[in-house]
Amino acid sequence: MKDSKFSDAQKAFILKQGADGLPVAEICRRAGISQATYFNWKKKYEGLRPAEMRRLKQLEDENAKLRKLVADLALDREMLQDVIRRTL
């Protein structure tokens, strides 16, 4: 996935502006983002501090690596079972 050009602190600041009552259209215009991006960030990060946002990203990256590892192991297991079936 592509890295954002916005830091976690910038995202938190943008979301805080929305929480403070500034219109979303104005926030997005100033930040140069789409409203869809704003609402995706809001859904994912609302209420998190920048450090918590970084930790969430680390956990998501670790989870993706573990999912890939499990998928690879499942494929290896399936291939080994197939070889064993053929040799019997």
Rank of each mutant, 00 (worst) to 15 (best):
Y45D: 05
F13H: 15
D82H: 08
R85S: 06
K57T: 06
R86W: 01
D61L: 14
D61V: 12
L73A: 06
D3Q: 13
M1S: 15
A19P: 04
T37E: 11
V83N: 08
G32C: 05
N40H: 13
K2V: 10
I14A: 05
L56D: 04
R55W: 07
L56E: 03
E46Y: 00
L80V: 00
D20V: 00
R54C: 13
E62L: 11
E26Y: 00
Q81M: 11
F39G: 11
R49G: 14
A19L: 10
S34E: 03
K43S: 13
K16A: 15
F13E: 15
A74W: 01
L66K: 09
R55N: 15
I33K: 05
D76K: 06
R55M: 14
L59Q: 13
D61I: 11
Y45L: 04
Q81E: 12
R30D: 13
L15Y: 02
D20G: 02
K65M: 12
E26P: 06
L73V: 01
Y38S: 09
L66N: 09
F39H: 09
T87C: 12
T37D: 11
Q10S: 10
A51Y: 10
R85K: 10
P50K: 02
E78Y: 04
Q81L: 12
G32Q: 02
Q35C: 09
S7A: 11
L88K: 09
A12H: 06
A51I: 10
K16Y: 03
L22V: 10
S4H: 08
R29L: 11
L88D: 08
Q17H: 07
A64C: 08
R29T: 11
D8I: 04
D82A: 12
L66T: 05
Q17A: 15
M79K: 07
D72S: 07
V70G: 03
P50R: 02
K43T: 11
L56N: 04
D76E: 07
R67W: 00
R30L: 15
A25Y: 00
R49T: 12
I14F: 01
G32W: 01
L69P: 04
R86Q: 09
M1P: 15
L80R: 07
R54T: 14
A12R: 05
Q58R: 15
Q81F: 08
A71N: 04
L48S: 03
K43P: 13
K68M: 13
R77T: 02
K57V: 02
A31E: 06
L66C: 08
K65Q: 15
L73N: 07
L48W: 01
D72F: 01
A9G: 10
K2S: 14
Q17V: 05
G21W: 01
K11M: 14
F6T: 05
E52K: 06
V83S: 10
K57P: 02
A74P: 01
L80Q: 07
E62I: 07
L56K: 03
G32D: 03
V83E: 09
R49S: 14
L69H: 08
S7W: 00
K44G: 06
T37Q: 12
F6G: 08
E52S: 09
I14P: 03
K42E: 09
F39S: 12
Q58H: 13
I84K: 05
I14Q: 02
I14V: 08
F39A: 12
L66F: 05
A9T: 11
